[in-house]
Nucleic acid binder design. Structure first.
Lengths: 185, 185
DNA sequence: CCTTTCAGTCTACGCTTGTTGACTGAAAGC
DNA sequence: GCTTTCAGTCAACAAGCGTAGACTGAAAGG
């Protein structure tokens, strides 16, 4: 027996999943409410009733999953950053990609991405040595973003290798950025 | 006296400029033919007649400006890459940004970006030492993309500094990627 | 059992979009 | 000077969009 409340919860959840998938695949503009409803085996009108508007549906579907706080000694920070990046390179981070996608076509979402990235970046910078810590942690963010986008979205040739091989190259860069050390000349 | 041919050239050029600006600002989907025509002081119908379709207009407006071939010894390559990145960080590369923006909402454009990046990346990899040269040159591309996007599009806090300060940090990373050297432990 | 509630469906609206084609008037060609 | 060409304008189109609201039928509640 399916109660009414339960049916509703399931439907809402199916809609949200479909929205996450489609926003991740096609971005905000090229995803229509009708597409979401169809994939969820539901109805456009129902989507509107449950989520208010396409805008609000997006806000819930593409809420940026906050990376856990990163803290500790520089060495520990480097390890955590490396682990987080490895994970992002391994399986497609749908939600994060949706957010990035949206940033480029959807002004409001851009603000969200900026806020999320800035917050994390400041938090990291506070724990790094050196007077250009904020810039360095910004470069870490840029490198991370660049790698994720280049691998998953652009599907750049050379990056189509196991995450471990990528990290063998990117890892030392992160270490260097965290500690502020210089490479051998 | 303005000849007819000259007037046409000027109009096409105005349309193309407006398209470049608007595609760069708002991406493909959120830029309408009417907006382009208005900014160019022209007419939507004329835009269609001259460029065929919005799609073709975009193709011409956001054609990715091929970076000049990069070649020489590893040291020379590193220098050229550094110079190119410095330039990209200094002034907004509108066309490239438009292409990147479009990539997130427009699958076909992603293919263009892939082609352009892949070509350059292979060309560089051929001249680098080491057996993981292709991966390293891919990471260089990712780092470049990440920095440009983070600075100009996300407008990330820490990266809002003079290009020289950024390059003081990113430059060594590129050197390291080019030569395949390891940082001091 | 009868009424109320509410998940889910269907239809249609107003609007914007890319695109087309008929029209106008001035430059080009003879 | 007369015809042809063609840059530029205007109005309208079909299609697709987000959204609203009336409707249906089964579960909930007394």
């Amino acid at each position: 027996m399916t109660t009414r409340a339960e049916a509703r919860r399931q439907t809402e959840s199916r809609i949200l999943s479909a929205a996450r998938e489609l926003f991740g695949e096609h971005g905000f503009d090229r995803t229509t409410v009708r597409m979401v409803a169809a994939r969820a085996g539901s109805d456009p009108g129902l989507v509107m009733r449950y989520f208010g508007s396409k805008e609000q549906l997006f806000a819930q579907a593409a809420a940026i999953p906050a990376d856990g706080a990163i803290e500790g000694t520089p060495d520990e920070i480097a390890a955590q950053l490396t682990a987080a990046l490895t994970e992002k390179l391994a399986d497609e981070p749908i939600a994060a990609l949706a957010a990035l996608r949206a940033m480029f076509s959807h002004p409001e979402a851009a603000g969200e991405v900026r806020k999320a990235m800035t917050a994390q970046q400041r938090q990291i910078a506070d724990q790094l040595p050196g007077d250009d810590a904020l810039v360095r942690s910004g470069v870490i963010g840029a490198l991370t973003l660049g790698l994720v986008v280049s691998r998953h979205l652009v599907q750049l040739d050379g990056l189509d290798v196991p995450p471990e091989r990528l990290m063998a190259i990117a890892g030392p860069l992160i270490d260097e950025l965290v500690t502020g050390s210089r490479p051998v000349e």
